[in-house]
Design a protein around this nucleic acid. Structure first.
Length: 882
RNA sequence: GGGCAGUUAGCUCAGCUGGGAGAGCAUUUCCCUUACAAGGAAGAGGUCGCAGGUUCAAACCCUGCACUGCCCACCA
């Protein structure tokens, strides 16, 4: 099979992604003889197609899975998607709105039909994208957070928690999104800086001309005020405590109370207390037994207010109140003020704290256990720096509001007993998988199910257990074998929303953490450092990249992009160089495969004959150690970069070039020897690189396999250690070659032109290495001959290179530009002088001699020595040149 | 107000337990040398944010500061 000159990723990728799926390459079964290595995918929300963040996340997981598979683990990576509650419902609602359809007119049932249609479409898109990415997922295990089995898990968990008394219903102040029409948990609120005002308002004392001034950002909520609070230590107000104030506009009597949380220095030190519209106020109200007056309804409209305010939006009411207060002389001053305002994390609507009947989960005990698990090292964060934020968050966690007033989601499995007319009775509500047959209290048989659904993160939190059938059988084999999973890979934006909650639930239901490692990777940003988002229009679509540069290029670029846990900025250029790398791999392999033509077998052992062989084997060994270590510690970027450097620079630029000498020789045995090493190093590199670039490596591996002349290469641990000193020796030769090339380049000598060289030996110990490897120098520096001498007769019109142990002359009669050579030498001279100064200074420092390790001192001495020789030789040459 | 990251070449980023500043892209010169022009060779480009400290020796360790980003927080 002829290999194309340019790597054609399209045909190769299509072939392999199909092969892996059809061949069930990544299916896993319980196998007690093998160690499991398990990852559950963070299920993508079915809001649309996968973006660059998903591409990064899945690439990293796939790299880990494929690497562990190479190491012989029984690997399992479970795919799935998330129904994404509020987010997905919003997307579909918007879509329907475009068609002029309102969800309320449609009705719950019909609306859910639309949701499922959407789910089927986008769910498939996402899964097919994962397949295109080459992800080594077990496709027999695809799960969805709202499929039948996962629904059962949600019910089971809810019922258990309810029966333990951890889930309760209550009327509390919750974060309410008036647009989504639902309550949100505390972490689903994002705080955004907003320019606003601080209004200073007079609150008169009852039957007095005196007044207190309060400062507020929300004047419209004054209708719900039930007190004014001051700090008990505040001398300004001490004598007034307990007195009655008259609420402006309403003329309702409220008390002046004290509370320790009041900051004397803020505003006027007096806070209007609106228990139904502010979390702080609500706490104060609880402590002081204040009445709670609700003034804003779930649509964000004013209620329980004077007639002319009723039904106004919050914004309208604010303007009107301010105007009225001003007219009536209550407004003292308005101060420009910036503060943070809570916004819905899904639609950015301003959150209204409202009193509302909701379901809550008591998380106190679960949090404590989740903290302990991480402190005890049962679960380890990578990087470790995330441990603290995780712990702090759990320590201060309030009960989780788990009910949502949405339609798309897991309906809360609570049933209320109703009478014949359908009215709820006072009987106890029942948590149950199905509607109960009979009420335990009144023996009635009519029930209605709670209208609300659960927070989407409730089912996400169960993911690692629900995926292995905990809901069917808590002691099933799969759960026992695959749980706890090995690692969870995710971005840091969902540590609280998801990671912490999985740990809580895992410990609650399995008595064991859900994963051993948490690999927190960075977030993909655009080239200006902004988060990629549709609204900013700065998204790079992974599909476009795959189309233009190839999937391996996409994967490699992402793998290289950022050090562990750090955010990364991505631009098109990074994919370009990754594509070039793929092409380089392709062509290097092509070269080797071309040279295998006509060779029946490689019946030679991998024996390092020459220095270059010993060198590349030593480099290969060092590289494999480093790469392996990097993979294991989730330093995917280090692994990728190391492979890149080894392959491109060491393998291609040096070893392949050096191998050509033997490749072109008549000696078949020599050719076979070098080919064997070339193939061996290539195969090891391909193996190590295959987790990152599975397509191209599989393809080349297969082509090599078809040759049937090379036995399987050994992997990693079986690689033999090589003598590191060969790396030093090779470095020495490379320095000589580079020095000669530099001269050629400076003098503009055509590569076609062979020139001779005179090596004046200054240090006999170095002579042997060069003599033994003379052909390398000749080949790579394009020399026609090398003459070794000890008694130099300086040739006219020659260029000079001084390297460790040698003074090299290139006689360049007719080619040399004397002025250029002088300039070049002067520059070299300056460098040598600098080196002498630096090293001399060190060696003259007694402290350095006394305290630095001997090896270090020796190193400096050598450097000084060589710099001195260089200086002398350059000076001589300069004198000679005139 | 706390906490956590970051600040290294024009851009994007590496730099492990302190001992001669690196890569990719961009740029300059030369080369279509029979694996690869998506390539090869050579070069230019950095007071490693600032100021102190520890050390024989600091991009790296410590302290402070500045700037950027993120997270958390009941100053209305």
């Amino acid at each position: 099979m002829d290999m194309e000159k340019v790597y054609n990723f399209k045909t190769v990728e299509g072939k392999w992604s199909k092969y892996w799926v059809e061949n069930k390459t990544f299916s896993a079964k319980v196998d007690k003889n093998k160690k499991p290595f398990t990852i559950v995918i963070p299920p993508a929300n079915i809001t649309g197609s996968l973006h660059m963040g998903h591409a990064l996340n899945t690439t990293l997981q796939d790299i880990i899975i494929r690497f562990k598979k190479l190491q012989g683990y029984n690997t399992l990576w479970v795919p799935g998607t998330d129904h994404g509650g509020i987010a997905t419902q919003n997307v579909v609602e918007k879509l329907l709105k475009k068609e002029g359809i309102n969800k309320y007119e449609l009705g719950r049932e019909k609306f859910l039909e639309k949701m499922w249609q959407w789910k089927n479409k986008t769910g498939d898109t996402i899964l097919s994208q994962l397949k295109m990415m080459g992800c080594g997922l077990d496709w027999d295990r695809v799960a969805f957070t709202m499929d039948e089995s996962r629904s059962k898990a949600v019910k089971k968990a809810f019922i258990e928690l309810f029966n333990k008394g951890l889930i309760y219903r209550g009327k509390r102040l919750v974060n309410w999104c008036t647009r989504c029409g639902t309550a949100l948990s505390d972490i689903e609120v994002e705080y955004v800086d907003e320019k606003s005002s601080l209004w200073h308002i007079k609150y008169p004392l009852k039957d007095s001309n005196e007044y207190i001034v309060i400062a507020t950002t929300r004047p419209e909520t004054m209708f719900g005020d039930t007190a004014v609070a001051v700090n008990p230590e505040d001398d300004r107000y001490k004598k007034l405590l307990g007195k009655a104030l008259m609420l402006p506009l309403l003329n309702r009597e409220i008390k002046l109370i004290s509370d320790y949380t009041i900051d004397k220095s803020f505003g006027t030190g007096a806070l209007k207390v609106t228990p139904a519209s502010d979390a702080v106020d609500n706490e104060i109200a609880k402590r002081n037994n204040l009445e709670v007056i609700e003034i804003i309804d779930i649509n964000g409209k004013m209620i329980n207010v004077p007639e002319n305010y009723k039904g106004l939006t919050v914004k309208e009411a604010r303007e009107k109140v301010v105007k009225e207060l001003e007219i009536k002389g209550y407004l003292i001053k308005v101060q420009a003020y910036d503060h943070k305002v809570g916004k819905c994390y899904r639609c950015s609507t301003t959150i209204e704290p409202l009193m509302s009947e909701q379901w809550f989960l008591n998380v106190w005990q679960m949090s404590k256990r989740a903290i302990d698990a991480v402190n005890d090292g049962e679960t380890v964060f990578h990087p470790e720096s995330w441990k603290r934020p995780y712990t702090l968050w759990l320590e201060n966690l309030r009960d989780w509001c788990i009910s949502r007033q949405l339609w798309w989601g897991h309906r809360i499995p609570i049933y209320y007993c109703v009478d014949e007319k359908g009215n709820k009775t006072d009987c106890k509500s029942i948590a149950s998988f199905e509607a109960p047959k009979q009420c335990l209290c009144c023996k009635g048989s009519n029930f209605v199910q709670d209208e609300d659904v659960l927070d989407t993160w409730f089912s996400s939190a169960l993911w690692p257990v629900s995926i292995f059938g905990w809901q069917e059988d808590e002691h099933n084999k799969e759960l026992k074998y695959f749980y706890p999973t090995s690692v969870l890979a995710t971005g840091h934006e969902i540590i609280y929303l998801w990671v912490a909650r999985m740990v809580q639930f895992g410990l609650e239901f399995m008595k064991e953490v859900p994963y051993r490692d948490v690999f927190i990777h960075g977030i993909v940003r655009d080239k200006h450092g902004k988060k990629m988002s549709k609204s900013l229009g700065n998204v790079i679509d992974p599909r476009e990249i795959m189309d233009n540069f190839g999937t391996d290029a996409l994967r490699f670029a992402l793998a290289c992009a950022g050090a562990l846990g750090r955010d990364m900025q991505i631009s098109e250029e990074s994919f370009l160089s990754a594509r070039n790398f793929a092409n380089k791999i392709w062509n290097a392999s092509r070269f080797i495969i071309m040279n295998l033509e006509g060779i029946e077998n490689l019946d030679v052992d991998i024996t390092a004959i020459e220095l270059s062989d010993k060198w590349i084997l030593a480099e290969l060994y060092e590289m494999s150690l480093k790469v392996k270590k990097a993979y294991e510690s989730y330093n995917i970027d280090t692994a990728s970069r190391t492979l890149y450097d080894f392959f491109w620079v060491k393998y291609c630029d040096w070893y392949i070039e050096l191998s050509k000498i033997r490749m072109m020789s008549e000696d078949l045995q020599a050719k076979k020897q070098v080919l064997k090493i070339l193939v061996h190093a290539l195969k090891v590199t391909l193996q190590l690189l295959s987790p990152v670039m599975p397509f191209i490596t599989s393809e080349i591996w297969q082509i090599l396999g078809e040759k049937k002349i090379i036995a399987e290469s050994k992997f990693l641990n079986e690689l033999k250690e090589s003598d590191k000193s060969n790396i030093e020796k090779m470095k020495f030769l490379q320095d000589i070659i580079i020095a000669l090339r530099t001269i050629r380049s400076k003098m503009n000598i055509s590569p076609a032109q062979q020139i001779e060289a005179l090596f004046n030996v200054l240090d006999e110990s170095k002579e042997k290495v060069v003599k033994e490897n003379e052909s390398y120098v000749k080949q790579l520096a394009k020399l026609s001959s090398i003459t070794f001498t000890k008694n130099i007769v300086r040739p006219n019109n020659s260029a000079l290179a001084v390297v460790s142990g040698f003074e090299i002359f290139l006689p360049l009669e007719g080619l040399i530009d004397i002025e250029k050579e002088k300039t070049r030498l002067l520059k070299e001279l300056a460098l040598a002088k600098q080196e002498i100064e630096k090293t001399t200074a060190k060696l003259e420092d007694d402290n350095f001699i006394k305290r630095a390790p001997g090896s270090e001192v020796e190193k400096i001495k050598t450097r000084l020595n060589e710099a001195n020789i260089k200086l002398d030789k350059i000076n001589e040459s300069l004198r000679f040149l005139g």
